[in-house]
Every structure is written in C-alpha cells, then in structure tokens.
Design a protein around this nucleic acid. Structure first.
Lengths: 153, 153
DNA sequence: TTCCATGCAAAATATTTGCAACATT
DNA sequence: AATGTTGCAAATATTTTGCATGGAA
C-alpha cells in the first residue's frame, strides 16, 4: 500500500512544519532515516529500519532511529503498530484514505491491510452504545494466509 | 462479565483433564492461584494476581503465578490479552458465549467487553476476501469512557 | 523414589533515558 | 555561542528461564 506522490508530499510538509514549530533541527541522520522510512517497506520494525539505514551509513545508532520514529509518530506522519510479536512496527500515516486494519499471517509474518467501512460504522455504533468517545482502535485478524495454506504444513 | 456456574465447572474440568494428560501435579500454590484467578476480577495482570494471591499466602513467587497463568492459557482456560500498556492481562476463556472484544478507557483504565455479531460476520467476509484462514482476532477501541468524559479534564 | 513444581536470581527482550561530545542554527 | 542531536552505555520494564531445593504421586 504505497502512498501517492501528493500524500507523501503532504506528510513531508507536516513533518517540516512540526520540526519548525518545535525548533528541531535537520540533521544528516534524521534526513537519512526519514527518507529510508518513506521509501522502505511498510510495517518495518526499528531494527529493520536500522539495518537499511546502516547500509547507507554505518554509524547510525539504534537510539537515533528510535527517536526519529517517535518524532514521526508524534507529528502524525507515522503510526506505531504492535502485532503481538513484541515488536513495534511503523507505517506511514495515511489520513487521506480511510482507516485500515490488518490481517497478519502467523506462519510467514505477512501483513495485509484491509478496509471495511461497514465495520467502522458498526464500531461507532458500539462505542455510542457504551458512551465511549473513541480516539483510536485496533482491529487485527491473525491466521494463515492463502500462500501458507497451500504449503500444507 | 462473570461466568455462570456451569461454564466455570467446564473450565475447571478442562484444566484437570489437561493436567492429568500431561502428568502435571496439583500443588497448594497452583490451587490457590487458580482459585484466586477464577474468583477475581477479569483482565488482571500477573502483578495484580500475585498481590491477591500473596494476601492469602505470602510466600508465592512471581514466577509461579506466571507459569500457572501460562498453563491456564495453554489449555484454553484463560486468554492472554494485551491492551497496549505493556502488560499482559488474563481473562477466563468463555467459549460458551460468542467471542467478545474490548473498549478500553485510556483515562481510567476501565475495560468494557462488547459483542457485536455483525462485526464478526463482516470480519469473516474480509478474511475470505483475502483467502485468510483466521484463528484469532483482536478488536479494541481506545478512548474515554462515559464517566471520564463527565470529569471534564 | 521419581520427577514435577517452587522460589530466587539471573537472563533475555525491547524500549527508554542520561550524558558527554558534536552539529545545526 | 546557544541549544538541539547523536551514539553509547546504562537504566527500565516485563517476561522468561536455570537451578537447587522441596513436594506430589
């Protein structure tokens, strides 16, 4: 689920605005990490991203990647996800599109995104029923993807 | 969401059968921890349960509670849940009833269970659309409960 | 008597933070 | 020059495991 050019530009602008507002600085490390994150696969862990980043600059530290991803999450450019394997994963935020949720293959780790507006509607209904004001939600299905089902087992 | 007597008996029987099959032993600690778990509130953390258990027997160790909950989860008597605060929580399994999901108040920590069969149906539809064979799912909504909304903020 | 269970302490996992040196503005 | 940033190491926070001792069967 790659974002189109316009969406990417919007996110980059948001980051820039946030950094300006906060008086944060543009460093070589930050630029490299951010670029790598934007270009790389979705749902990467900090470790994943660190590996890719180090391929381009060996000196980058874990904490810098960690802090940069945190920064991206803070300003709404990235979303942190946890899929139960104990690792935090990050994906580009995409508020231009409807909220999506995830199907996770417990065999190969593949993560598929899905959208189902009718579920969102029912969710709202449930929240209203309990008087909750919902700020975020998590809807994940764990199982075996089509490919892994074929591989017998 | 307390279970009725019959459901509890069923779960206890399942545990007993599992232990017998595996040659596991009934110890005073295990009995105490299991009883406390069955009688206590839902969604307790290991630490919560340890506190309650120690009120009855000071000598119980964290690891024993940890291992007992793991045992309960293994045989399907308890379900482990994680609601994003970094702690594992446990609730009694209840396969007699429809699967339930959770509303979590990010202000006071209250956890409300809900059931919405229509969401389950749509879920199945989505999984089928992607060829996934779903074995479990997680559907959580985070926000502010009715009470906390009143407390202004 | 055998072998599982317990409690303690140590290890393992991941995340988060303190700090001196360094870089941006 | 002032202040934010980096990388390293240490601190956290939890969960998980090793092991000698104790207990169930």
């Amino acid at each position: 689920m790659t974002l189109d050019r316009a969406a990417v530009d919007r996110l980059r602008a948001r980051l820039q605005a946030y950094m300006a507002k906060k008086g944060l600085r543009s460093t070589a490390q930050r630029r490299l990490i951010v670029d790598t994150f934007f270009e790389g696969a979705s749902h990467m862990t900090i470790e994943d991203l660190l590996t890719e980043v180090r391929a381009r600059d060996k000196g980058i530290g874990y904490a810098t990647v960690y802090r940069t991803l945190k920064l991206l999450a803070e300003c709404g450019v990235a979303s942190e996800r946890r899929f139960g394997d104990g690792l935090s994963r990050y994906e580009l935020a995409d508020d231009a599109k409807a909220h999506h949720d995830h199907l996770i293959c417990i065999s190969c780790g593949t993560i598929v995104e899905f959208e189902e507006p009718r579920i969102e509607t029912l969710q709202d209904e449930v929240a209203h029923r309990y008087g909750f004001q919902v700020t975020s939600h998590k809807h994940e299905m764990y199982g075996t993807c089509a490919d892994c089902q074929k591989k017998v087992s």
